[in-house]
């Protein structure tokens, strides 16, 4: 065994001996060293990242995948701003216990329009990938104002200021436009109406709401999320986003049903 191994390793060792000689000469040239480092370090990333764009099955094809409404996107931006990803993942792994606790595992297509993705790397709090419709708006508002009001054991920070802060909507067309540049299929009409649609989504009894449903689909939640009918707040936006998590496509549920049969 030992013999076999030694024979097997011999070429390695011989190569290395030769390499050491070359190296001895190379290490006198800073540019050679630079080029060597760039090449050696370049390979890995290229081989792992480039094919993710060329292999078709990487991202599932679905027809019912919808984009975030302006209000939801604004909420997502708040989620980013508050760095909720430091405690919450949005990625249910393909493991039995995760599927049983949180629901069908996350699919690549579900974060297709997520710039950036918010899969997270730490679960101080639970996964949020299938959060949509799991709680009431009212619960979210109370939970965000003071998590320990509803979950006494929680260590999540209070976000009471969200309910006091008006949502800035003027920049929404610009934000949607930028998202279109990076590949989210927003139409001109969606971009032009972005600010109005953000308001409309929280005004079910006004006609502005119709435009939202028309542009983003029947399933869009049109509600006054934060229970302050006369104001559009950051709380509205964040809750609207939380309520749509996992709801952009029905594919995960279809896969789940097929798998169980």
């Amino acid at each position: 065994m030992n013999r076999l191994f030694r024979t097997l390793l011999k070429p390695f060792s011989a190569f290395f001996e030769g390499h050491a000689r070359t190296h001895y000469r190379m290490e006198r040239h800073s540019i050679a060293l630079t080029i060597g480092i760039i090449i050696a370090a370049g390979v890995g990333g290229f081989v792992e990242i480039a094919p993710l764009f060329t292999i078709d099955e990487t991202v599932e094809k679905v027809s019912d995948m919808r984009v975030y409404t302006p209000l939801e996107q604004a909420g997502r931006d708040i989620y980013v701003r508050e760095a909720c990803y430091t405690c919450h993942s949005q990625m249910i792994r393909t493991l039995r216990d995760e599927v049983e606790r949180y629901g069908p595992y996350s699919l690549a297509v579900e974060s297709k329009y997520d710039h950036p993705m918010l899969w997270g790397s730490k679960r101080t709090g639970p996964d949020l990938a299938r959060l949509g419709d799991k709680f009431s708006d009212d619960w979210h508002v109370r939970h965000l104002i003071d998590p320990r009001d509803v979950v006494p054991e929680s260590v999540m920070p209070q976000y009471a200021f969200l309910a006091r802060t008006s949502l800035e909507t003027a920049s929404l067309p610009g934000r949607l436009e930028a998202l279109r540049t990076v590949g989210v299929p927003y139409t001109d009409e969606m971009i032009a109406n972005a600010s109005l649609d953000a308001l409309g989504q929280t005004r079910p009894d006004r006609e502005q709401a119709d435009g939202v449903v028309e542009r983003y689909g029947e399933a869009t939640h049109v509600r006054n999320f934060d229970d302050q009918p006369d104001r559009l707040t950051e709380m509205d936006a964040l809750v609207a986003y939380l309520q749509v998590l996992g709801k952009l496509t029905t594919l995960p549920d279809q896969i789940k049903i097929v798998a169980e049969e």
Binding site: T94, L95, R96, V99, E100, Y105, I255, A259, E260
Partner: peptide, 11 residues
């Protein structure tokens, strides 16, 4: 995905 589907069916 096949692995987790199988695990769940088995469970």
């Amino acid at each position: 995905r096949g692995e987790v589907d199988a695990a769940i069916v088995q469970a």
